[in-house]
Amino acid sequence: MSDWFEPLPAEEKNSEFIAMQSKTFLQEAWERFKKNKMAVAGLIVLLIFTLLAIFGPFFSPYDYDAQDTSNAYAAFSAQHLLGTDKFGRDVFVRLCYGARISLLIGFGAALINSFTGVIIGGLCGYIGGKFDTIVMRIVDIIYAMPSMLYVILIMMVNGANVRSILIGVCIPGWIGMARQVRGQIIGLKEQEFALAALVLGASDKRILFKHLIINAIGPIIVQMTLLVPSAIFTEAFLSFIGIGISAPMASWGSMAQDARQVITLHPVQMLLPTLCICLTIFSLNFLGEGIGDALNPKKK
């Protein structure tokens, strides 16, 4: 029996030992994010749009409002990468300017709305009682009005520009986030780790921000990635019905509006801006999902 087994050489003793290297939270999150192919693709598309929005116009000799009526509806060419529109304006440059407006409104509104929503929702959920009841009824009143009404009213007063749209979108925009966060916090604050923090002597601020909100970060990010497209959509919609960004400034919505009359003759005019909107929103959704998963340490 004994010669069935033979001792291993000493150096092989630890050859099976697998030690995982310790990484910081962000390193691990990045690692998990990289595994999600669609999210990475979304990130790349968004980066391209952002770069084009910032630097695109510098690489083109044309201005967004430079007209050349003799060259209207030109096809794709070396002079005009993506052709020209009905006034002979360069479509590529106009798309870049449109990206500026869309991304500015989208991300600006999402940041402002998330901040307001997380703070108000967090406080309501944590404090509860009368404070919660009163704030939530005010929220109901704001929510009861059609959100488009706020945007249109603000634009009547302040003029049709990016700032008005941003303000209009941000008045009712934080409500979804606030409700979401409030619900999360109400569930989380009864958890034992919140009680443990209380027993350790943690302040309310510490419990709310370091223990509760950080545990709601997944749903917050998902909600945030829904806020970006909804703001982009609102802008595109307003421009499409003709009350958004005023001519000659270009936005994806107003370009689609211009192309509406010639959709049968020049479908490309419609296709390009809508394609931009679609790509941006798809990318944002995949990106949001990827970040949400990456920030959850329970998913390996």
């Binding site: 780790f193 009680l195 443990a196 923090a197 027993v199 002597g201 223990h211 545990n215 340490p297």
Partner: peptide, 25 residues
């Protein structure tokens, strides 16, 4: 007023899956 006493009075919780903040090391 309780803060100094928090050091002396402590608690061990029932559910080890819920009593540790999952986002903390």
């Amino acid at each position: 007023q309780m803060l100094p006493y928090r050091q002396k009075l402590q608690m061990i919780f029932q559910d080890p899956y819920a009593s540790l903040n999952p986002r903390f090391t």
